[in-house]
Design a protein around this nucleic acid. Structure first.
Lengths: 239, 239
DNA sequence: CCAAAAGTGTTACACATACACCCATGC
DNA sequence: GCATGGGTGTATGTGTAACACTTTTGG
């Protein structure tokens, strides 16, 4: 199999599938489209599409992200390759190999589904499926990956607007992990990690109308968290 | 892009590339083939090949693994999808999307390169490249991934024969990470993690001819490590 | 006896957890 | 004043890091 022969091998269609997450009012949402045709007509599915001849999968994913969200500038958004799904029967019509991506959005633009007929909506994560194809599994894999990366990277700021409060940052962790976190301890950990967040001098914002105004922070330059911020008893721990 | 049209899209070739690691005398080695034809004739490359029409990428990877190592039974070996490399120019001849895998072998069979003409040899990891295509990058990504997974999974036993000593297990960590580890502390951590290793009752083995015979252990049933076994100052930590 | 490798013990320190408590704002 | 959410302080336990030390083998 070291001799390449471009005519000797079955062609594959290569697509990208996107698990796009955002937070709306402190709740984790995911972007889903509604399929208009068979198979799985009427079912929800992850947004995605074919990789074009001159594109890498990453480029295709970012293009699809812009099309589906309707955002004009998606260049700064976090986009991360998850894994590739290639089981022969995953699409009943033809052989489709799909490279899955996870994307994180700070704010959720209400209107979207710009480019094509299929409607796209934000759906609360955890709402019952089943989704089309193997998209339930892709979505679960994406959620697990994002949750794990929150532990040892600065990824959480990707869910936040340019300036945010520590309470908002904590909401990201709580929404993705589905567990409450002790606020004082969270605060200390974040501030003790150099480069995770930087204070915006003097700025403060009223949060829910009520309560003390919160100091504002910007994302720092660090990408990894040492030591990590572990979620409470994620698995396997007997104690 | 929700309407599928199998004739409207450029066909892609889909291949798998394998980063196969093993330990030989305590040193990390990787399996490389020597290319016989252009491009990159004479250069070393990762073993791999085309995904067949009826195969998933995982199935293809395991088939290639068996062919390249010459092992008759590769069913129990650790094989893990890394990521997919899809940049348009990565193969100068045609559009090739490659799904990369990392594999771990406990023992290194000397003779291999069974199926085809290309020679395959074990090369010490870190030996100077450059390798063909983007295989240097794939190899670096694979090494980083394996190193990271040693921290929070029981993956290290995949490098070991069915029965092994704690010293051998420690050598896995030291070889992959490239750092020495304190033996007493390593020992305690491993034994304190339930299900990581199980003692083989009464068995012991002389290790280097010299020294006290070491107790033997088998891999346990656990897959994750809580708490993790962190490598010393992997990155970013200023202290 | 010496070298080499396995195995045990101990101490100091970092970190996480679980709270109690104070501050500023809207109603 | 009271509810709400931001921010500070502190004790207690767990886990790690860095060591010194003992044990068992071959030469």
């Amino acid at each position: 199999m070291n001799g390449y022969d471009k005519y000797a091998h079955e062609p594959f269609a290569v697509t990208v599938d996107l698990a796009v997450f955002t937070l709306r009012e402190g709740v984790l949402h995911v972007l889903l489209v509604e399929r208009g045709q068979e198979p799985y007509a009427g079912h929800r599915a992850l947004p995605g599409g074919f990789v074009q001849p001159d594109e890498s999968a990453e480029t295709a994913a970012r293009r699809e992200l812009a099309e589906e969200t309707g955002l004009s500038d998606v260049s700064g958004l976090h986009l991360e390759q998850l894994r590739t799904y290639s089981e022969p029967g995953r699409d009943p019509r033809m052989r489709v190999v799909s490279v899955a991506f996870a994307a994180l959005l700070p704010d959720a633009p209400e209107a979207h589904g710009g480019s094509d007929a299929a409607r796209a909506d934000w759906v609360r994560y955890g709402t019952a499926g089943p989704r089309a194809f193997d998209h339930d599994r892709i979505l679960a894999d994406a959620h697990e990956r994002v949750g794990a990366k929150l532990e040892y990277t600065c990824l959480a700021t990707a869910f936040c607007p340019p300036e945010f409060t520590l309470g908002e940052l904590q909401q990201v962790y709580e929404a993705v992990w589905g567990t409450p976190i002790d606020r004082p301890n969270f605060r200390r950990k974040v501030l003790a990690t150099p480069g995770f967040v930087e204070p915006v001098p003097g700025a403060a914002r009223l949060t829910g109308g009520r309560g003390k105004p919160a100091a504002l922070y910007r994302a720092g330059t660090a990408t990894t968290l040492h030591p990590p911020l572990l979620r409470p008893t994620p698995e396997g721990r007997p104690a």
